[in-house]
């Protein structure tokens, strides 16, 4: 059986799709057969981040409606042959997803894959609810600012009450915190919430801090998940996240600005 991971946040623009692409690639690179699904029907993005937008033929909604088989819709990544992408439909809206249909697709993927990463859309409507409904683990992506923290908190409430595990009274979804776009210098000057500020409200298991980094944007534009950019701080941070998720012990980095020389080398200045 596959482990189903939902990458969620409530708020938009915090880095859900970047994170989904990075950790899916990270898991595949570690030798685990991984599928990543774009749940953002109507606002398809994941294919761009993974650089496979020109190979999309069938999509998630086609599979749910029985218009294509899963194998027809899955796109194999060009950088890693253990990573497959199930793109969202760009021409439909979230109502095209049904719980029964999503459940059927996930069940079928579970037979073949070790990990299934569900890239949730923003908001707390149908698409987001379906992305988390079947999850075993949740990566809650949060930016160090108050509205993102509150939206994450709301999302955690939904995770603990509206998932399949909650409805069946099973062991709850494991929740992990991913603090993204973290800038130690702005934290120090008081412009940004610190890790402690965020944890005081969310008190979650911290999987990693992804520092604000120019390499994220350029990787997105190039269609190469940032985790493959091993020189960038963000890429290293995502590699740490994947390793920690798989049970490795790695100390947290990028909390304070101590890696100053790295920042200077790799363009981490604000």
């Amino acid at each position: 059986m596959a482990r189903i991971i939902v990458v969620t946040s409530g708020k938009g623009g915090v880095g859900k799709t970047t994170t989904s692409a990075a950790i899916a690639m990270g898991l595949a690179k570690k030798g685990h057969k991984t599928a990543v699904i774009d749940f953002d029907v109507g606002l398809r993005n994941l294919d761009l981040i993974l650089g496979c937008e020109r190979r999309v033929v069938y999509d998630f909604v086609n599979v749910i409606n029985g218009e294509a088989s899963i194998n027809q819709a899955l796109i194999r990544d060009k950088n890693c042959n253990l990573l497959y992408i199930l793109p969202a439909s760009q021409t439909r809206d979230k109502d095209a997803l049904t719980q029964e249909g999503v459940g059927r697709v996930l069940e079928e993927l579970s037979k073949e894959f070790e990990y299934i990463v569900c890239d949730s859309p923003a908001g707390i409507e149908k698409g987001a609810n379906l992305a988390l409904y079947f999850a075993d683990d949740a990566f809650v992506v949060t930016n160090p600012e108050v509205s993102s923290v509150r939206d994450s908190d709301r999302m955690l409430g939904i995770l603990s009450s509206k998932s399949r595990r909650a409805e069946r009274n099973e062991e709850p979804i494991k929740e992990y915190l991913l603090l993204t776009r973290y800038d130690p210098i702005r934290v120090k000057s008081g412009e940004m919430l610190s890790l402690d500020d965020v944890q005081e409200i969310l008190s979650l298991h911290l999987l990693g801090i992804i520092p604000e980094s120019k390499s994220v944007l350029s990787a997105s534009n190039a269609g190469i998940p940032v985790i493959l950019d091993e020189k960038s701080e963000a890429g290293q941070a995502y590699a740490d996240v994947v390793a920690r998720y798989l049970g490795e012990k790695r100390p947290h980095r990028f909390i304070d600005g101590k890696q100053g020389f790295l920042r200077r080398l790799f363009g981490g200045k604000k």
């Binding site: 409430g157 939904i158 709850p172 008190s203």
Partner: peptide, 8 residues
């Protein structure tokens, strides 16, 4: 014993 999250 669980945290009560925003919106609950």
């Amino acid at each position: 014993t669980q945290p009560i999250r925003s919106g609950q």
